[in-house]
């Protein structure tokens, strides 16, 4: 059979299915559907972050800091509707602040245009997805986490500069991930206030409030974590656990 004739048959089939679908639309009791897109925005102290080597921001401990790079995974998004129904979108999504395309995540499911109670997701990768080799190409592969630290992937690379106790600029690199068998990913649940999802297309905006990583319950003085002697925290279990705790207040949601 030639390619063309397969193609013609497909068109015929699609046309038939569309007719059926149209017929259904007019049946009573069928809810309208919507496509949900999650936009990711990154704020510091209430305003959108600007990447750069300057140190214009201040954290709770009083350190001046700036942000040079932000990349992370979120996974297993679940939309919780008012009536208790849930729509799960398994899998991981990679965000790079510097790559606008990654900051919009179009959920690949039909969602009833009903009232949205909440949105939940995993910050990072749950153990089932955090397996070396699951991303073999693209920027996702570059999130790899050394085998010597247990393998898998970084959950987040949040980097910048701060002014240290010696009044000198010093780099911080808040890289998070699982350490050997200890999983530091965590669940995030964001209240959506039962707002109605508009028919056709709906956009939710998830905001990562960057200063919150360093705020509470554990106030981070960056001098305690990023020094010449130990410039990173990847292999530091206490620091990973501390950021996991602080992550509870990092995200907020804006609904349409």
């Amino acid at each position: 059979m030639s390619k063309r004739s397969i193609f013609t048959k497909c068109i015929a089939l699609v046309a038939l299915l569309t007719l059926w679908a149209c017929g259904d639309d007019h049946e009573p009791g069928v809810t309208a559907q919507t496509t949900v897109t999650i936009d990711f925005e990154h704020f510091v102290n209430g305003a959108p972050v600007t990447l750069g080597s300057e140190t214009p921001y201040t954290n709770a401990a009083g350190n001046s800091f700036g942000v040079t790079l932000l990349r992370y995974f979120i996974s297993d998004v679940v939309l919780h509707l008012e009536g208790g129904d849930t729509i799960a979108v398994p899998g991981a999504h990679y965000v790079d602040h510097d790559d606008p395309a990654t900051r919009s995540y179009v959920l690949d499911v039909e969602v009833p245009a009903e009232r949205l109670a909440s949105v939940s997701f995993v910050m990072g990768l749950p153990p089932a997805l955090n397996v070396s080799g699951s991303f073999s190409t693209g920027p996702e592969a570059l999130m790899e986490w050394p085998e010597m630290m247990g393998g898998g992937y970084h959950f987040m690379k949040f980097e910048g500069r701060y002014i240290n106790d010696a009044s000198e600029p010093f780099n911080f690199r808040a890289h998070t991930g699982g350490l050997h068998d200890v999983d530091y990913s965590f669940d995030v649940v964001l209240d959506a206030g039962n707002r109605p999802l508009p028919e056709g297309a709906a956009t939710l905006t998830v905001v990562m409030n960057l200063e919150q990583w360093f705020t509470a319950p554990h106030e981070w003085d960056l001098n305690d974590y990023f020094t010449a002697a130990m410039p990173g925290i990847m292999a530091n279990a206490a620091a990973q656990e501390s950021l996991q705790d602080n992550g509870a207040t990092v995200f907020s949601l804006e609904t349409p």
Partner: peptide
Amino acid sequence: MSLFYSERGECFHCHAT
């Protein structure tokens, strides 16, 4: 190799995969 894949050496973040 251990140093290469540690944050004391940092090499692996750029000389990656």
